[in-house]
Amino acid sequence: MSNGTEDLENLIALMAKLPGLGPRSARRAVLHLIKKRSQVLLPLADALHLVGTTVRECLTCGNIATADTCHICQSDRRAIGQICVVEDVADLWAMERSGVFKGRYHVLGGTLSALDAIGPDELRIPKLIARITDERINEVILALGATIDGQTTAHYIADQLPGVTVTSLAQGVPVGGELDYLDDGTITAALNARKAL
């Protein structure tokens, strides 16, 4: 590119950091945005600014929200006594898309990983344990990926919760699968067929 295009190069480099976009895809996306400046680029810039300044993590469950407490935690329509534990917000959204689970959630923010030096304190596990007592939870549903780290995390959490029924998603979740990539029917079947750990 010619001189004076540092801003464009910076935008392309930032776009290339997004999941699923490499330098070529980012370049095409930026060119498209410029061509559709008034229809796409400017509204996108406004939306990014708004989200960047207003969205935060729910203090209770870890979902994202525009207030300190998300709409799920605030809702009096959600079942009391059940918490569905997920790895990240994308998994929470996948569970919500299925429309089957009517309780509350807890987002861990990842899974335990000795290789990456991620222990319980780097995740929201201590907050989960505190919620069990504070909210009188009688069932914890572990909706973690069927990966080695996901299963290690599930067993660790189950060991930390004596006296509480701990279940996990069952059939339908393939080994190595992630919730965000599953269809609603598979999530529904897995939730309905959960089993005790």
Rank of each mutant, 00 (worst) to 15 (best):
P43W: 06
P43C: 14
L48I: 15
L50K: 14
V51D: 01
T53C: 01
T54S: 09
V55L: 14
C61A: 04
C61W: 09
N63F: 11
A65K: 03
A65C: 10
T66F: 04
T66P: 05
A67V: 03
A67H: 12
C70G: 05
C70R: 06
H71P: 02
H71L: 12
C73T: 10
C73H: 04
C73P: 03
C73G: 07
Q74T: 09
Q74Y: 00
D76Q: 13
Q82R: 15
V85E: 00
V89E: 03
L92A: 08
M95I: 15
E96H: 04
K102D: 08
G110I: 02
G110T: 01
L112M: 06
D116W: 01
G119V: 00
P120N: 06
D121G: 05
E122D: 11
E122A: 11
I125N: 11
K127P: 13
K127Y: 08
K127D: 15
D134T: 15
E135Q: 10
N138M: 05
E139Q: 14
I141K: 09
A143F: 11
A146T: 04
I148L: 08
I148W: 00
G150L: 05
T152E: 03
T152K: 06
A154L: 12
I157Q: 04
G163D: 03
T167F: 05
L169H: 04
